[in-house]
Amino acid sequence: MVPINRQNARPLSAQIADDLRRRVATEQLVVGEKIPSLRALAEEYSVAELTVHAAVKELQHEGVLASTSGRGTFVKALPSAGSEEPVDSDAVLTELRELRQEVEALRTRVEAVEQSQRGD
């Protein structure tokens, strides 16, 4: 197991998903095999079950894992080399512009608060 870095900017669930993906790719978890329960994985990674659940959901979305009601979660397939979804560059640029506008608005608000505290 790769230790989870709590100081890392990446969410814990993403780090866990990366580790589970690595374990499947290196056949520590084999296609067709049941993975440990959410509770067991939560204990292994020293995180909440919801954090592990988010990681498992991500891998289900990618098609690496599949859950069967009442039976558990199984390794469905090896992760693809580029297991992340394709990036929509127009959407990314739009989001970036929106974030820049929000940052500028926040900067203006902070400057106004600082000026009022200084008595300018």
Results as ranks from 00 to 15, higher is better:
Phe74Ala: 10
Arg107Leu: 02
Thr94His: 05
Glu104Gln: 12
Ala81Phe: 14
Gly82Leu: 06
Glu102Leu: 13
Glu58Met: 13
Phe74Gln: 12
Thr94Val: 01
Val103Pro: 06
Pro79Cys: 02
Ser80Leu: 14
Val47Ser: 02
Glu102Ser: 11
Leu106Asn: 00
Glu95Trp: 00
Thr51Cys: 13
Ser80Gln: 14
Glu85Tyr: 01
Leu93Gln: 09
Ala81Thr: 15
Glu104Lys: 11
Ser46Arg: 05
Leu78Ile: 12
Ala81Arg: 15
Lys57Gly: 03
His61Lys: 14
Ala105Cys: 00
Val92Ala: 07
Ala66Met: 03
Arg100Pro: 05
Glu49Val: 05
Val103Ile: 15
Glu85Phe: 00
Asp90Leu: 12
Arg107Tyr: 01
Gly70Trp: 02
Leu50Glu: 13
Thr73Asp: 12
Ala42Gln: 04
Leu93Met: 13
Glu104His: 10
Arg107His: 04
Glu95His: 02
Ser46Asp: 10
Ala66Thr: 09
His53Tyr: 05
Pro86Thr: 10
Ser89Leu: 14
Thr68Ala: 04
Thr73Ile: 13
Pro79Tyr: 02
His53Val: 03
Glu44Asn: 06
Ala105His: 01
Glu102Asp: 11
Gln101Glu: 13
Ala81Asn: 14
Leu50Ser: 14
Thr68Gln: 08
Gly63Asp: 12
Glu44Trp: 03
Arg71Lys: 15
Gln60Cys: 05
Leu96Ile: 08
Arg100Trp: 00
Tyr45Gly: 00
Thr51Gln: 10
Arg71Leu: 08
Ala77Gln: 04
Gly70Asp: 01
Leu96Ser: 13
Val47Asp: 03
Gly82Met: 08
Ala105Arg: 01
Ser89Ile: 13
Ala91Val: 14
Glu84Asp: 09
Arg100Val: 06
Phe74Ser: 11
Thr73Val: 15
Glu102Tyr: 07
Gln60Pro: 00
Ser80Cys: 06
Val87Thr: 10
Asp88Lys: 06
Ala105Asn: 06
Ser83Thr: 02
Leu106Arg: 00
Glu85Met: 06
Leu65Asn: 05
Lys76Arg: 15
Gly72Leu: 02
Leu99Ile: 12
Glu49Met: 05
Leu106His: 00
Ser67Ile: 08
Leu99Val: 07
Glu43Gly: 12
Glu62Gly: 09
Ala55Gly: 10
Val92Lys: 07
Asp88Pro: 06
Val87His: 04
Glu84Ala: 14
Val47Gln: 09
Ala66Leu: 01
Ala105Leu: 02
Val64Ser: 07
Ala54Pro: 03
Ser80Val: 15
Asp88Ala: 05
Gln60Lys: 07
Ala54Gln: 09
Glu49Arg: 06
Gly70Arg: 03
Arg100Ser: 09
Glu84Arg: 08
Thr51Ser: 15
Phe74His: 11
Lys76Thr: 15
Gly63Glu: 15
Asp88Leu: 05
Phe74Lys: 08
Ser83Asn: 03
Ala42Lys: 08
Leu93Arg: 14
Glu95Phe: 01
Gly82Asn: 11
Leu78Gly: 13
Thr51Ile: 09
